[in-house]
Write a protein that binds this DNA or RNA. Structure first.
Lengths: 204, 204
DNA sequence: CAAAGAAGTGAACTTCGATTCACTGTCTCG
DNA sequence: CGAGACAGTGAATCGAAGTTCACTTCTTTG
């Protein structure tokens, strides 16, 4: 009589959930948040609109989850680098290269993740990610100062500036309008890298 | 028979136009774009909703004009500094201080101007302003390099990084959530200033 | 297999704010 | 003044999503 979910069903549900998330992510990657209405997401995922609401209480929740997952991934990559061996300068350099490089590869999504207009509630998730990225930079700067590699400096402010320099250095090329020009990604990343290193390593 | 606008009428019209712009600007300054629906703008300006459409073809146009005017003003201040006497480093320092200081004073508006979620069309206007700010920085860096003050460096990238550093260094404190904490504005501006100067003046 | 419970459906509903427009008020000029 | 033209009004309209829900389809269990 009672209906117990079997393991197979449980998997199908999890599957469908990630299909929906994947569809949303793809639409956002291609056309930004504006090109991801519920009907389109549902359509791409191969389910009816109503079904989406069995998995996510609202569109905001769904989008926030997409942002959270994508951001989390980026953060992990950068944070992983902080833990490696090497001088602070080296690791900072690598972290920036990783962040910028990945952003350049997945341009549209990166733009949505860091810069595109969205609802405040989703923006909060995005902001959290920025802060986390900031903390990663803070950690490296802190280590650099203590190791005598970097001069003393206000760490949170410097970290925020680093985040900003990376993002804006990319948002120019990232922004939808500018995306037509196929610029030299490697050179751009290198320029940003050097800019950031000079900023934290130089003495006033 | 014909109806020629007299000078007085012409003035009244221009007046009403700027009253509407002012109302929109005020609402945006207080609560961001979301707190500025047409009815509220019209109400604050003391006209009917329909009247607004005699002055602006659409809400987008109205908001874009507000952004344009506000941005223009900021740009003028910064650009004015480039033209003054003094070393490139000095002027860069002053330009940053002016930009950051003004932004900190008019926080909510500054946030709306640089970071708040908006319609793509308005975003384009905002982007234009960022680019213009970038060009100002480019000019200073260029002069610094030619004067031998700064080392050679990719100028557009460096300028973009400067813009980003300034904005992000502020958006942390600017963002609506963080606005409760009353931090030390002067210290923050000083930190950003030094960060930026180190970045452009130091040798690799 | 039949019943019960869960998942899926998508058309209809709701909301919300931009935009319109038929009408009224105001001004210029002969 | 009176006609013609412009300005102002705000309730009604419209459009665009997000969300709901009565109904269908599928899955499990006795």
């Amino acid at each position: 009589m009672a209906y117990r979910k079997t393991e197979r069903v449980r998997e199908q549900l999890a599957d469908k959930r990630s299909r929906i998330l994947g569809a949303a992510r793809q639409l956002i990657s291609e056309g930004g948040f504006n090109d991801a209405p519920m009907t389109a997401i549902a359509g791409l995922a191969g389910v009816a609109t109503g079904t989406v609401y069995r998995y996510f209480p609202s569109k905001t929740d769904l989008l926030a989850e997409v942002v959270r997952l994508a951001s989390q991934r980026e953060l992990e990559v950068v944070a992983g680098i902080v833990m490696t061996e090497g001088s602070a300068a080296q690791r900072l350099s690598e972290a920036i290269a990783a962040f910028a490089g990945r952003a350049l590869r997945g341009r549209r999504l990166a733009y949505a993740l860091v810069a595109e207009p969205v609802a405040p509630e989703i923006d909060a998730t995005r902001l959290k990610y920025r802060r986390a990225l900031g903390r990663v930079f803070e950690a490296i700067i802190d280590q650099g100062i203590r190791a005598g590699e970097f001069p003393a400096q206000p760490v949170p402010a410097a970290a925020a500036c680093l985040v900003g320099a990376c993002i804006e250095g990319l948002v120019g090329p990232l922004s939808p309008e500018a995306m037509k020009v196929e610029d030299d990604g490697a050179a751009l990343v290198a320029a940003i890298q050097r800019f950031c290193l000079r900023a934290v390593t130089a003495h006033d």
